[in-house]
Amino acid sequence: MAVPATGKPAMTRKERAELTRGRLLAAAVDHFTNRPYDEVAVGEIAQAAGTAHGVVFHHFGSKRGLYLEALREVARRLNEIHVVEEHEEPAVLIRHQLGKHLAFMTEHPGFALSLVHGGIGTDPETREIFEETRSFANERLCATLGLDGTTPSLRLTLRAAAGGIDEVTLQWVESGCAFPAERVVDALLLLLASALEGAARLDPGLDVTEAAGVLVTAAAGAGGGH
């Protein structure tokens, strides 16, 4: 293998292709973060990535294909928020996760809009990506609270709560963050507590007293005094 003047081995064709793909994906995330799908041109993304227009189609097949990969990347980052070292009390952990969720969506307003309105119209793959992200967040929440996330009533009410959290987040972002983030987190914690109580109403054999109490305590803690 030839060694250039820098002393580093030259990249292989596969490595160069992977690097180009990564630049395109990063540029797509950046563009779709700040503008709706229909307002972003493939040429803009290619130019930002320093490559030719046709290379986008080589790697992703279409603008939609690139958009879906960008959504998957954002979903992956969003999922990371809910993977934490569980050495803190549940109330602290959940409050911290919701705070990071708000911050993430504030930094990615275009995807916050997609989260609520389904991306490209009613595109089923777009919806599937976000449904998986919501399910993952609810699974982590249940694990932190010591609940069985497969319980039908919990799946039902927490799924509804996830939609409510997304809508609150979007409206908050679009309002220019009119309320302090800590108070929004308080509201979301109480929304989740209500979802647990709703699940117990559907399934009287489900005991959520302790778990709901954790959420109410979290809302009355770090943020409740603001």
Rank of each mutant, 00 (worst) to 15 (best):
K8H: 09
P9I: 12
P9Y: 09
M11C: 06
L25D: 03
A27Q: 03
A27W: 04
A28Y: 06
V29F: 05
P36I: 08
Y37D: 00
D38I: 01
V40T: 06
V42H: 10
G43Q: 01
I45E: 08
A46M: 06
A48D: 04
A49I: 10
A49G: 07
G50D: 01
H53K: 00
V56D: 06
H58N: 09
G61L: 03
G61R: 02
Y67D: 02
L68S: 00
L71W: 08
E73F: 08
A75H: 07
E88S: 09
E89H: 08
I94G: 01
H96A: 14
H101V: 01
L102E: 13
A103N: 13
H117K: 06
G118D: 00
G118V: 02
I120Y: 14
T122A: 05
T126I: 01
E128I: 03
I129M: 01
S135T: 14
A137D: 11
N138S: 01
N138T: 02
A143Q: 14
A143T: 11
T144Q: 01
D148T: 15
T151I: 09
T151N: 15
S153K: 04
S153C: 11
R159S: 11
A161R: 08
G163M: 09
E167N: 07
T169L: 08
W172M: 15
S175T: 14
G176K: 07
A178G: 13
A178N: 09
F179I: 11
F179Q: 10
P180N: 14
L189A: 10
L190P: 05
L192V: 02
S194D: 11
S194W: 05
A195K: 09
E197S: 08
A200T: 05
L202M: 05
D207I: 09
G213N: 09
L215S: 06
L215A: 09
L215W: 12
A218V: 11
G225Q: 04
